[in-house]
């Protein structure tokens, strides 16, 4: 029946000539996947970040399959790892070679080892390649732990308020007060020095970030009318939290999680550097850097590559996280 030219033909009637101004401060946290994806697609730097992450993940997956699956299937001889892991003959191993395009006191670079070799004669490129797997998996798992635990703590604290809130937040603050490197190291020394505990430890150390974030979202969402309505309708608290509060906190949490993975990777690299992480001979970037310290003067290139790998990967997550933040922040869009 009605035809209107060039306007959004809204069928609801404006009930008065004095509509209230929409509150510009209301953050649009209730955004969905589709909107997020469409916004990200328009941002070149975010896409670049996504690209980097994609490549890194691909590398990690390949490394994982290579190291884990092949031996199970009985095809160890095809593992690239086997081929370059440890030179079988220590005396003949080409140690501390520089990248292919230079020469140093230890010899000439060759394209068989494009980035050079380490102090045990192992190819640096392969080790960096395999280190990706550890970096990404630890980063993602640790962040997931922090996210899940932090969400539970934060939403409970924010929703119930009062005593519960006080106690939980004090606990969170205490966790935060211990310099987290120290916390994680002590944790690992207590329970185990290897990678699993590094993941758990870093995860626990990052709980406060998410707890605080979720809590502040919950606090603002809690006052919304639809929560009141849900409560009045008799919906149980737990359902309110899960079905309404948490989905509405989607945007900032996604941003924080992405950025936090980058942070986790940096922390784990630091831990490995200090000796608390992947144990030799498993290659991890931090640990490679630690090894390289002894050879900084004669073979500086050894120190460069693992650090660059960390840098690029973390840049990827930061680009994506920034892109997400820009895409989802309504005020910047205005």
């Amino acid at each position: 029946m009605a035809t209107t030219t060039g306007s959004d033909a809204d069928s609801r009637t404006e009930s008065d000539a004095q509509p209230a101004e929409a509150d510009p401060e209301q953050p649009a946290a209730n955004v969905g996947w589709r909107y997020t994806v469409s916004q990200v697609r328009r941002d070149p730097t975010a896409l670049a970040g996504l690209g980097i992450i994609g490549i890194a993940t691909l590398v990690a997956v390949v490394a994982f399959l290579d190291q884990t699956v092949l031996p199970i299937v009985g095809m160890e001889q095809y593992t690239i790892a086997q081929a370059v892991w440890m030179s079988p003959n220590a005396e003949v191993a080409p140690q501390l070679l520089p990248p292919a395009w230079t020469t140093n006191v230890f010899g000439e670079g060759t394209w068989a080892h494009p980035l050079g070799t380490d102090d045990r004669g192992r190819d640096i490129l392969s080790r960096v390649f395999y280190g990706t797997r550890i970096a990404i998996s630890v980063g993602v798992i640790a962040t997931t732990i922090a996210l899940v635990a932090g969400t539970v703590v934060g939403s409970v604290a924010g929703y119930y308020g009062g005593r519960i809130d006080d106690v939980l937040m004090r606990a969170v603050e205490t966790l935060y007060a211990i310099p987290f490197l120290v916390l994680v190291i002590v944790f690992m020394v207590a329970f185990g020095r290897d990678l699993t505990f590094a993941m758990i430890g870093v995860g626990i150390a990052n709980i406060p970030t998410f707890a605080r974030l979720i809590r502040s979202r919950v606090l603002s969402v809690r006052e919304e009318d639809y929560i009141e309505a849900a409560r009045a309708a008799g919906v149980r608290d737990r359902n309110i939290i899960f079905r309404h509060v948490i989905p509405n906190s989607f945007a900032p949490v996604l941003v924080q999680a992405t950025l936090q993975i980058g942070v986790a990777i940096l922390i784990v690299a630091g831990l490995s550097f200090l000796g608390f992480g992947a144990q030799p001979p498993t290659p991890s970037w931090g640990q490679m850097l630690s090894q390289s310290r002894d050879y900084m003067l004669p073979d500086p290139w050894f120190s460069i590559w693992p650090g660059m790998a960390i840098l690029i990967t973390v840049v990827g997550f930061n680009l994506l996280g920034d892109g997400l933040r820009d895409a989802l922040d309504p005020r910047i869009n205005n």
């Binding site: 931090g286 850097l289 120190s303 960390i310 840049v315």
Partner: peptide, 17 residues
């Protein structure tokens, strides 16, 4: 961006080198 993405200890190593 580079500053927040670089491991601090690596910066130290590179600076020393």
């Amino acid at each position: 961006l580079l500053g927040v993405s670089t491991p601090s200890f690596w910066i130290g190593l590179v600076l020393i080198i």
